[in-house]
Design a protein around this nucleic acid. Sequence first.
DNA 1: GATGAATGAGTGTTCATTCAT
DNA 2: TATGAATGAACACTCATTCAT
Lengths: 196, 196, 196, 196
Amino acid sequence: MSKKETILKTAARLFATQGFEATTTIQLAREAGVTEPLIYYHFKGKDDLFTRIIDATFSEYFSRIDALEKKPASPFGQIRKLIELQYDIAEEMPDEVQLIANACPAKFNDSEGICAANVREYRRRLIGYLTRSISEGISSGEFAPVPLEETAILILSVINGIVRYGRMNPDPEKNLREAAVNFCRRSLIINNAHGS
Amino acid sequence: MSKKETILKTAARLFATQGFEATTTIQLAREAGVTEPLIYYHFKGKDDLFTRIIDATFSEYFSRIDALEKKPASPFGQIRKLIELQYDIAEEMPDEVQLIANACPAKFNDSEGICAANVREYRRRLIGYLTRSISEGISSGEFAPVPLEETAILILSVINGIVRYGRMNPDPEKNLREAAVNFCRRSLIINNAHGS
Amino acid sequence: MSKKETILKTAARLFATQGFEATTTIQLAREAGVTEPLIYYHFKGKDDLFTRIIDATFSEYFSRIDALEKKPASPFGQIRKLIELQYDIAEEMPDEVQLIANACPAKFNDSEGICAANVREYRRRLIGYLTRSISEGISSGEFAPVPLEETAILILSVINGIVRYGRMNPDPEKNLREAAVNFCRRSLIINNAHGS
Amino acid sequence: MSKKETILKTAARLFATQGFEATTTIQLAREAGVTEPLIYYHFKGKDDLFTRIIDATFSEYFSRIDALEKKPASPFGQIRKLIELQYDIAEEMPDEVQLIANACPAKFNDSEGICAANVREYRRRLIGYLTRSISEGISSGEFAPVPLEETAILILSVINGIVRYGRMNPDPEKNLREAAVNFCRRSLIINNAHGS
DNA sequence: GATGAATGAGTGTTCATTCAT
DNA sequence: TATGAATGAACACTCATTCAT
């Protein structure tokens, strides 16, 4: 891994665990095994580092969601896939995901609002994806007639909740992923056979 | 309101909206309409302010949960009441609630771990409350045979999700509170008649 | 003891042990069992407290030296009495004496030079006293023909040295007082019988 | 001289003349011709500066005393050399010597007791050196049978006294160095011919 | 005589950032 | 690429002191 990449990875980890403000450039330099000026050779500054990490993470998110939309599936299959996708991403890049979950609100009104724009777009896409899936499910009679957007928000809440929980309590025994899928299924599908 | 209280309230608001580290004492003093040294006359320092806000908020939480446990209700009635309680508290003291939701993880390993201890106790109580309610519901045949703790965590996720959403998108038109109750009800109760 | 006196005594102790600058008014208030504003009711401020302690201590010194001069004694008897006087004062008011020994040089160029003036006067009197005694002793053939002022300074050095030593090493077994008298006697008196 | 050295030298001078507490970092920066943060780039802080100066000064002292012990001399020759050594050091590095003489007692109980440990070692060495010399002199019949340790302390007092005096009254006419040597010689040596 | 509340001016220290090499 | 040295701006915090009561 190049030094530039090391800086990025280390920054993501420190920003995620300590917060953006609490991470100093000298600490970042030390933990990345470089000197401070080198950070400024590769990046414009601390904000630039933050922005790049956020942007890259959301990019990854967006392309994954796009990929998801192209694969046909049943209404609940789509929802299941979204839950699983979030879980997978959180396992692949836990630092970046936590960074987005925690630090973003704090930097919401920031300089160029880069973070806020990303978050809005992210919500827009996820809610759109879920709204469409739920709508389909209701139309086909598969789902109960739930309110569209509210339910989308609730499913998102479940997703965020388990991702957060997994970060703070790394307990491999609990199968939250499966439990979350079932929890949502039972709530949506009109069917006497629970957990089928 | 005394100047001491003004400082506390202002600190809660700033810590919640900007984060602990990003809030400077001079800014706090200005927005509270006092001089900087007065903060140090009434409090030991920035950390002390933070700790007191956290402690007071969790105290309020705990006493409310305790009060809840004393009122008898049906299994789902208990869960409904918890959801509504969280919503109410978030409306009463939105700054403090957001502060706990956002800043706490960042200060988790802090000095005396005051925040961490509170968060653990808080989770323990809520999960305990929910686990008992779910267990009762399953025993009485009212609820589907869901995994206890996982389901408790998922319900908590729903609660936290809507509280967070309500903070970031203050949209009085959406009735997330009612939607959340129904979402959980459908997922738990064995009953053909949805949304009744 | 009145609160005013308590403040003075406590200030002398703290100034002596920690230094003037390192002693804060709040610490002084706490250790004296009063509140800060009371210090300002009785005294003009920290500097005023310092000045009064210094002045009172030197006053005491001066009146004691004056009293000494009035009692007739042999040349070495006079010197012996001065050594013993210093030792006595240091035991009576150890804080004040140490304050003068340590803190004064640091405040030498201070505001009104009150300390410096006192120190100069103090040196002038002691050196004058010793010079006269030595001069007498030489004239009478009792003392060796030592240089007057230099020897006076050296005797003062011995005095200051044992006072300082006694403060830092409170060791009642060593009889430094007697040893100092003998040390000076042997150096001054022309006589084969040492230590008589 | 590098900026780092300039900071050290300036700090020694200011600490010595004004005291540690009364010297501010901004004043130190100005008088050293650097900016404040540079002090913190080269040193950990004000305390670190103080400690380093003290340590370096005592190191110099110790190595000089060690060198002294290796040169053979008569009992009084040894004592004479010690007096002259102290005088020399005080002329070479007057700031550092005064710093040790004045500021140390105030910082005696400080943080890691670095100063106290040095002072104890310093006293131990000097008193040991003097005790041995006096003991030799008494054994050989050259010295009067004076009490060992007390006399060592008194000689040290004479040394410290003239060093202090020389600092406060820079008067090149008085030959205190020679007077001190003679003062001690007369007090120790059994001999009718004084001042020979 | 005595105090709780309050403050202007300053403290030591750290920050993200730059420059010369 | 890479760095040792350096800095302007800001930081949390403390000081001696005052005022209204």
